[in-house]
């Protein structure tokens, strides 16, 4: 976590008690399909993300990027296939030697490893900023209230909003709300942070502040990030890998340098020339 771990130079595995050594596989999609009616959003998708890596998903809208994040967050269920997080199946659990559909408790345990920041922030309007951040650590993780508040203050400091902790979300700008949402997600100490077009709902002048915070987190922690964004500059800065999606499949992946400068796939080239 930001305030505790020393920055890990690129390439050096950063170990902590919570995350596996960088390099180990943390997320794996196994032949995942998802349809909405007749619309096939994900088609036998296979990919994996190693711990500590920052992966950006790009592609035209409707290509299934957000669906991937929502599946990982268990806001959706796959029609076929399975997702493995840190060695645990997300939608199945082991009873004896059989895999059965996961119960609520199992799903909750696995998804504690995952945090998500939404496009529309989704802060709780009935709680002040500080409580937005402490509520889940206290009531889900059972963290003592003092400790949760101490930690929330550190996180607010990280996102530069310490002076706003007693306000209600509605009293903050969109950019401030989004930074609170980032702090809220980090307060759960997830191994994976999902970022779902986190700047798309913001006024242009507020985008930079949010991206700066995320850059800071990406560069100073060993958290794994899965990021859907239209901010290509940001993607280039933070990503280890960029995945290009089209029609529910990964059509190309590679380092940001390769993907942005010299993509192999014609469709990738087309897409990037349209957005860059």
């Amino acid at each position: 976590m930001p305030s505790e771990n020393t920055p890990s130079p690129a390439g050096t595995p950063a170990e902590s008690t919570e995350t596996r050594a960088a390099g180990a596989e943390l997320i794996r999609f196994e032949r995942v399909s998802k349809r909405f009616g007749d619309n096939v959003v994900l088609d036998n998708l296979e990919f994996s993300v190693d711990a500590g890596k920052h992966v950006t998903l790009i592609g035209p809208s409707g290509s299934g990027k957000t669906t991937i994040l929502r599946l990982l967050m268990t806001l959706l269920k796959p029609d076929e296939g399975e997702i493995v997080v840190d060695g645990d199946h997300l939608f199945h659990e082991r009873r004896g030697d059989k895999l059965v559909p996961a119960g609520e408790r199992h799903v909750r345990e696995v998804r504690k490893k995952i945090g998500m920041v939404f496009q529309q922030f989704n802060l709780f309007p009935n709680m002040r900023v500080l409580r937005n951040i402490t509520e889940a650590p206290v009531h889900v993780l059972g963290m003592p209230k003092d400790e949760a508040e101490q930690r929330a203050r550190e996180l607010l400091d990280l996102v530069g909003l310490t002076e706003h902790m007693d306000k209600y979300p509605v009293q903050l700008s969109g950019g401030q709300q989004q930074r609170v949402a980032i702090a809220r997600a980090l307060a759960m100490r997830p191994q994976v942070l999902l970022l779902d077009e986190v700047t798309s709902a913001l006024d242009p002048e507020l985008v930079a502040g949010v991206l700066d915070v995320l850059r800071d987190i990406a560069h100073t922690t060993d958290i794994t990030m899965l990021c859907v964004t239209h901010e290509m500059g940001f993607a280039r800065d933070i990503s280890d890998t960029v995945l290009m999606f089209n029609e529910g499949r990964v059509i190309e992946s590679g380092s940001p340098e390769k993907m942005f400068n010299d993509p192999d796939n014609e469709r990738t080239r087309e897409f990037l020339s349209a957005v860059l």
Binding site: M73, T74, L75, E104, R108, R111, K112, I114, G115, M116, F118, Q120, N122, L123, F124, P125, N126, E135, A136, H139, V140, R184, A185, M188
Partner: peptide, 25 residues
């Protein structure tokens, strides 16, 4: 629905979501 999803993303139980998020709103 976004509030429910935020609650899920933070691993609240159904009861906690009802009591802490949905009913107060």
């Amino acid at each position: 629905a976004a509030q429910r999803e935020a609650g899920i993303a933070l691993s609240f139980t159904r009861g906690q979501r009802l009591r802490r998020i949905e009913l107060p709103q």
